[in-house]
């Protein structure tokens, strides 16, 4: 057993290869989803069918690690089948918990599988003690993944107030808007991250050469434009360049990634149970590098050694645009 309090490292896996890499790199827990619209990373070529999920769970349990299954989109009206089936399968396969966002689906899970451990997805954006109490009291939710809208101080207050486990994002792509409460992508593409599980789907992305510029578009709408010397970012609407009052800027957020390596001790002191690495859409190499770096950092903190500066520098190289932020964890971000 790890000594308590201990920061649990929760790592992404979009493929069986990434899953194995996460286990080998020191993940305590791996989260993944079924290969359909029931999870919020519903991209082509990603995720697990039933057999792969069973194998992954067996592998994790052999190594005494845990598996969480994300079923965190919102079921379509008149079409609850795939979501209910995903929950039934997660229970049958022995998942250690399911990560849910939809209130109707939480109700189904609690009624149908009373012993299945429920985590609240970040897609529910439960950002305060009363909202978290709602999910805790009505559905017996045991852990909440906090939306990326809170400062470290607020996370500490919340964690003390709610009496259930909290999990926070530690590294990776950064939602700028409250998660599960953003329709920017569906506004431009008609495809909703909430319902269909994909923000800015590649099928709606275009890069057009116009003169000496590369113009990125989503749903035909210009999101950004790059000179030949600039790295061309992916056209996620909240990371685009727009004009307001005659000024062109990254109006919502610069092309940056979340990296909390420098504030891990503060997050631990705030009482969080688990650190989550974003990136089920990323490859095995990414998972290996990020997970092993965070493994080392968490172990160093546990031993009172402090954080590891060279490792932090190495992670910077794989951040979006090579730039990082601690996001909403610092109040000045707002």
């Amino acid at each position: 057993m790890r000594p308590l309090p201990y920061l649990e490292l929760v790592c992404p896996a979009g493929t069986p290869a990434a899953f194995k890499a996460a286990i080998e790199s020191g993940a305590d827990t791996v989260y993944c989803g079924f290969r359909d619209e029931t999870n919020a990373r519903n991209f082509p070529g990603l995720n697990f069918d039933r057999r792969e999920m069973g194998d992954a769970i067996a592998l994790a349990h052999r190594h005494e690690r845990k598996v969480l299954i994300a079923i965190n989109t919102f079921p379509k009206a008149g079409h609850p089948g795939p979501w209910r089936q995903a929950i039934d399968q997660a229970a049958e396969l022995g998942a250690d918990a399911v990560i849910l966002a939809d209130i109707g689906l939480l109700d189904y899970a609690k009624r149908t599988h009373p012993d299945l451990r429920l985590h609240l997805s970040v897609q529910a954006a439960a950002s305060n003690a009363d909202a978290i109490a709602f999910y805790r009291d009505r559905f017996g939710v045991k852990r909440v993944v906090l939306p990326r809208v809170l400062t470290v101080d607020e996370i500490g207050q919340l964690t003390r107030a709610v009496g259930i486990e909290t999990e926070v994002f530690a590294f990776g792509g950064l939602c700028v808007m409250a998660e599960g409460r953003c329709a920017l992508s569906s506004y431009l593409t008609g495809t909703s991250p909430n319902s269909q599980g994909a923000c800015a789907p590649a099928s709606h992305v275009r890069y057009d050469e116009e003169g000496d510029q590369l113009v990125s578009r989503l749903g035909g709408v210009t999101i950004n434009s790059f000179s030949k010397s600039e790295p061309a970012g992916y056209p996620t609407p909240c990371k685009g360049r727009f004009t307001a009052d005659g000024q062109t800027s990254y109006l919502f957020e610069d092309p940056v990634s979340l990296n909390t390596l420098d504030i891990l001790p503060a997050l631990k002191a705030a009482g969080v149970t688990a650190l989550k690495i974003e990136g089920r859409q990323r490859g095995k190499a990414y998972v290996t590098q990020v997970v092993s770096t965070f493994r080392a950092a968490i172990d160093a903190i546990a031993q009172g050694i402090g954080t590891n500066a060279p490792a932090a520098a190495a992670l910077r190289a794989i951040s979006e645009g090579g730039r990082e932020t601690t996001g909403a964890y610092k109040k000045s971000w707002r």
């Binding site: 809208v149 700028v176 808007m177 409460r181 307001a244 009052d245 957020e253 971000w333 707002r334």
Partner: peptide, 17 residues
């Protein structure tokens, strides 16, 4: 279309929330 902790009006004016 979305809500955020960050104020984009303030950000557009070089300010914070």
């Amino acid at each position: 279309l979305s809500v955020s902790a960050r104020c984009y009006h303030a950000r557009a004016h070089g300010l914070a929330k």
